[in-house]
Nucleic acid binder design. Structure first.
Lengths: 226, 226
DNA sequence: CGTAGTTTTGAGTGCGTTCAAGAGATGTGG
DNA sequence: CCACATCTCTTGAACGCACTCAAAACTACG
């Protein structure tokens, strides 16, 4: 069961053998490895596969004619990405870090015969996707810049935060510009807001992309409406 | 195959018989009728059915603790609404006009055995929903108020516009406040922007909720990035 | 060590918000 | 059918937040 992907821009492709870290281990799954900033698919490409993120972080975006960019979502391990519309992908998808993804033939989205369990997983993933996007709306809509950035940091804290003494620490691969395009503010506003959180000792910065949350309650309060 | 809905606030329920206007005619489907401003389901309610809009217009929204409201989508005939998360609805759903909806048991979302064709339709509707929400992101993100309102009017024109001489005319049931909460601007800004379009003779108002598009090209140009 | 990219910070501007008031539409009861 | 109450829509004036432009500090990489 091999998938020939027409948009394989030199990304290395291997056959995974019972990867222990894979959320759904299976022999003979087609796995793709991407280097930093490699493209997985473009908007308008024929959708031959939906992808399950195994490792790394991917970025889903739409780009305007005038160059403006809206980031739709970040793909973390366990996420399913690349749901098609009328047989085509409707976003760009690029690797933010070196990443590994599993390709599932799109037929499993509609066909439950071949692999009922995979089909069910994909359908449930679609439901989760809808739900996650609705949450994203709450982050974009009717919020001040501070509330947006706080919401984003809360989200990251929940997803990838690790305990560090009494605090929570996490790294993230996206630039200020990526965060800005996700939240629909400018990168300047993101930078300023993070600086103000630091000044208020709500967070501390190990580096630009490594944060320690000193006061989670204050951060969640800043995020306000959830 | 009857569905008992725990959140039936006195809305009239009938058994539809081979409705010709129904996108997917079938005998014995459970149909619900809603009066203006009736609630179909609340956020957090157990999701027993997904609904197919047959007639009327519904409003899907999320409400913050502080009273702010984000409108997620408007449900027009043909739309499938009420996709669950973990078995619960994750938005409010209210009727903007007297409406009719068909209730499909949620089991059909995951189960393809009982009614493979319905299952397929629901899965495809979920894909469309994801796609539509991504378009909504484009409307919210990185746009000026004028671009947002123009985008909204373009969307309505495409969905429900009717030819009127050389122009296109359409009515819409939502208030300025609804449009505002959909686009994440204030109702004042919506009103001002519509007035400015009228002043530029891009549109004409038959009434507050009935618009004639005089210059579609200009309107689409205002909407800019698509 | 030099170059390119990212992040931070400052200063000034403008767009959308808030507050306020009036005009228009809709519905109800006398 | 009209008077009144309520809701929606429009418009004005002033404020403030986030944007734009600009420059400096920091980081990463060859």
């Amino acid at each position: 069961m091999y998938i020939t992907n027409a948009t394989d821009f030199g990304t290395k492709t291997v056959n995974a053998v019972l990867a222990i870290s894979s959320p759904q281990p299976s022999i003979g799954k087609k796995t793709k490895m991407l280097k930093c900033s490699d493209n997985l698919f473009h908007e308008g490409d024929e959708a031959l596969a939906v992808y399950e993120v195994v490792s790394g972080v991917l970025l889903l975006s739409k780009v305007f004619e005038n160059g403006r960019r809206q980031i739709i979502a970040f793909g973390y391990p366990g996420d399913i990405i690349g749901f098609p519309r009328n047989g085509d992908y409707h976003t760009e998808c690029d690797a933010l870090t070196p990443s590994t993804v599993t390709a599932h033939n799109v037929k499993h989205l509609e066909d439950s015969e071949t692999d009922p369990f995979l089909h069910l997983r994909l359908v449930r993933a679609a439901m989760n996707e809808i739900s996650a996007m609705q949450d994203h709306f709450m982050m974009l809509g009717g919020k001040t810049a501070s509330e947006k950035v706080a919401s984003f940091l809360c989200l990251m804290m929940q997803r990838v935060g690790k305990p560090l003494g009494n605090y929570t620490q996490f790294d993230f691969p996206m630039t200020r510009s990526d965060i800005a395009d996700f939240l629909s503010v400018t990168l300047y506003t993101v930078s300023r807001t993070i600086s103000s959180f630091k000044a208020k000792e709500i967070i501390a910065l190990e580096s630009a992309k490594s944060i320690i949350v000193l006061n989670p309650e204050a951060l969640m309060a800043m995020a306000e409406a959830n």
